[in-house]
Amino acid sequence: MRKALGIQEGWEQSVNRRTAVKRAFGARKGWSQQIVFLGPCLLFFLTIVITPFILGFYYSSTDWNGLDLDKAVWTGSANWSRILHDDNFWKSLFFTLRFTVISVVIANILALVLAFLLMASLKTKNVLRTVFFMPNVIGGILLGYIWQFIFTKGFATIGDLTNIAFFKLPWLGTPNTGFWGLVIVFVWQTAGYMMIIYIASLAGIPKDLIEAAKIDGARPYQLFTSVYVPLIMPAITICLFLTISNAFKMFDLNLSLTKGGPGTSTQSLAYNIYSEALINNRYGLGTAKALLFFAAVSLITITQVLITKRKEVSA
């Protein structure tokens, strides 16, 4: 009996050992696969995105000047209290918020109008879609330069020819017209992109639903607010998210169109951070501002997505 048990035990042990070896071998194979497949992605992501992000929490409380790190001394809350009294920072925050609200509203309304236009069975539909989308493939830097010419030379000439006051304004020359100049270019760049998202969404609405509403006597306005809008809510969520975050993070356009000027009157938040660090060489302070910038972007976009997501219904 005992002997038999011993044999039994020995056999079990050897089986256990064999599965253990197999498992270890399998685990090693699993490990090598994990490293080969996920390794490169993690290596670059952790080095380029996560490390700087974590370092930001430290540098934001130092007086780092961008050059020697020895001088990046911990200064406690000095940067934060400095930001509190930095009028330019709050002015650029207010400018950015105002810019975001106005350009997001205009860009999305225009995008919706264009989408409805192209949903009608127009003969030139495909060409028009291409034209409206085109500005979006060109980078903000180049768009800004194109419009710098249009505002300073093109508009002036048109103004001389037509005598319309609108074209004779000192575009880019005053804080207010500079603001609207940025809005115009941003809308021109973004509307076509949002348009194709709205078109994709409108095309997915069942035709009979619209017909039914029409038979029930819905007016165009009612049709829009109670049928179309609820049904394209997912697209509205996406478009608002994209336009809000792009407008709030506007930088390239700001740099090439107005350079934040005249003075610092059209300076976006992103531009303010850039100039604090790369022009004033206050990297520590810039990092602190950038951290606040991150908090603001997250707060605004997450709130927006939560609000509009709640309004989504299914057809």
Binding site: L38, V49, F53, L55, G56, A270, T287, A290, S298
Partner: peptide
């Protein structure tokens, strides 16, 4: 967790990383 980290990182604006990135 890695996937969650990647997805969350999408919200970080470039300006919030660029100065430290220069250092790294």
């Amino acid at each position: 967790f890695v996937f969650l980290l990647l997805v969350s990182a999408m919200i970080i604006p470039f300006q919030s990383l660029m100065l430290q990135l220069v250092r790294v």
